[in-house]
């Protein structure tokens, strides 16, 4: 009896987290318009998802925004982490404190304050996409910084010195010695930036052009409307994203298991 309680807790937890997504996934393959209704097998939701222009634009726009803002955030955050790491202690402390602000801040506040600064005070039009991209970079660059700094601390400083002694210029030594050693931190920072951008609702709402939608803003608007066709197409989108995330998670597990085996 006592032994079974652990697995039961885990199973209930997983049930709570996954039942809605899985049930929605099953219904996305039917022509039912509400959960619980009896429907027959159909791909119609997936056809709507990939052929409706507004849905397609929203998906492409979300992905483009995530990729562009994450690349910018990764470059800025990584360079910032390296530069700060080799600066005076006082500079390091100051940067790491300011870096924490967007991390702990509520996204509503970040988005609203950026909107006031960029749009109201500086008069930059939201239609230029500049406030939106800046907003997403502000959201994610601090996380890149946070994932690179520990890697810098673990680094062996004598390797860099050795490269300089052997005649490498600082720029070459940076590229060939430092970057490879912190690369895993840069990659996880980039992945973090992508997920933050894809998940964001608030910063986008306060800084995006009126005609542009990300997945989050689109879904929130769609739930206010009453178009069942769009509603059920979003079930299909949710299922597609779930499957992609599942594949990535499985891939990460397999590769982690492989490296663990090699190390043994």
């Amino acid at each position: 009896m006592k032994k079974a309680i652990g697995p039961i807790i885990i199973a209930l937890g997983l049930l709570f987290m996954y039942a809605p997504i899985l049930i929605l996934g099953v219904y996305s393959f039917t022509d039912a318009t509400t959960i619980g209704q009896f429907g027959s097998f159909s791909f119609a939701n997936y056809v709507t998802l990939f052929t409706t222009e507004s849905l397609r634009n929203m998906i492409i726009g979300t992905l483009l925004l995530a990729i562009i803002s994450s690349i910018l955030a990764t470059i800025l955050g990584t360079a910032g982490a390296i530069g700060t790491f080799y600066s005076k202690k006082r500079v390091q402390a100051a940067v790491s404190v300011v870096n924490q602000v967007p991390v702990v801040n509520a996204d509503v506040v970040t988005g609203f304050s950026l909107c006031i600064l960029l749009v109201v005070v500086l008069g930059i039009s939201k239609d230029t996409y500049i406030p939106l991209v800046i907003g997403h970079v502000t959201l994610s660059a601090p996380f890149v910084y946070l994932s690179v700094v520990p890697k810098l601390k673990q680094m062996d400083p004598s390797l860099y010195e050795a490269a300089l002694d052997l005649g490498a210029s600082p720029a070459v030594a940076l590229r060939k010695i430092i970057i490879p050693q912190i690369f895993s931190g840069i990659v996880s920072g980039f992945a973090m930036a992508i997920t933050l951008s894809l998940d964001d609702y608030f910063i986008a709402t306060y800084t995006k052009p009126a005609t542009f939608d990300t997945i989050s803003t689109y879904v929130v608007n769609a739930t206010r409307g009453s178009q069942t066709e769009i509603k059920t197409a979003l079930w299909a989108l949710s299922t597609v994203i779930f499957i992609i995330v599942l594949c990535i998670a499985i891939g990460m597990n397999v590769s982690a298991a492989r490296t663990a085996k090699k190390e043994r």
């Binding site: 809605p20 049930i23 929605l24 997945i215 989050s216 929130v220 949710s238 779930f242 998670a249």
Partner: peptide, 17 residues
């Protein structure tokens, strides 16, 4: 893993249930 799925989509699922 749920953290990586857009929260509005997850809420849509929960809402239906």
């Amino acid at each position: 893993m749920p953290m990586w799925i857009n929260f509005t989509l997850r809420l849509t699922a929960l809402k239906e249930i």
